[in-house]
Design a protein around this nucleic acid. Sequence first.
DNA 1: AGTTGATCATGA
DNA 2: TCATGATCAACT
Length: 225
Amino acid sequence: MKLPSVPPCSIDELLQRAEQLAGLTLGELGQIANIRVPKDFKREKGWSGQLLELALGAQAGSKAQQDFANIGVELKTIPIDLTGKPLETTYVCYAHLTDVAGIHWATSSVRNKLNKVLWVPIDGRRDISPSERCIATPFLWSLQAEQEAALRQDWEEIMDMIAMGDIENITARHGEYLQLRPKAANGSALTDAIGRNGQIVQTRPRGFYLRKEFTSKILADYFGE
DNA sequence: AGTTGATCATGA
DNA sequence: TCATGATCAACT
C-alpha cells in the first residue's frame, strides 16, 4: 500500500482510499506512513486524525474549512469501544465569540463542517496500545433534516447567549447534542468575546463539540444496533 | 493568537 | 463511572 500524494478528486475516490484502511491497525498504517506510533496519546492527542489525513491525502496544514473542500467532505476519526459506541465527544470547530450578529446556521462553520463527513471509527480503548488499535469501516455520512434541526436548535441557543454577552454563563451542559467547551493550549489562553454590556472582554477560547449521544446514533444507524 | 488534529484527567 | 473543563502538538 502506498500513501496518496494528491487529494482525491471525487467522493468515490475518497471512499476507495478509505476502504483500503479498514482492518488495519494504527501500527500497520503508521509503518506504511513511516511514522512513529506513540505509546499513548497523552502528548499527541491528534495523532490518529493526522495519520488518517496522511493516509487519505487530505491537504496538510489545517485550514478553517473541510478537509476535502473540493468534494465537500470533512474527515473525522472517532474512538469507539468494543460495542461500537464513541468513547469521546467530537470536536467540530472553533467558535468565534465576537461579531456574531448576522451569522446564521445555514452558513455557519458547524453546518459547513458537518454537512458531509467521512467517519473513520477506530478502536479507542485505553487498555490497548495505540499500535494495536484497529481501524473499523469508514463510512460517508450526510447531515439529515432531523439531525440538522436538532443541532440548529442547540447552535442557536448557544449563539444567542454569545450574542447577548452571556459567554461566561455557557457551560458544556448547554445543548442537547451540540455543546460549547474550552478549546485552547492551556488555561492562560484568552480571546475576545462580547461582554455583559456589549463591550469586548477576554475569555477562554471555545469550540463546538458533538455529544456522544449524537455520534452514537450515527454509528448505530450505519452499523446497525 | 487562531485553528487544525483530538484525548486527558479530575471532580461530582 | 463519566462528562466537563483542561490540555497537548503542529502549523499559520
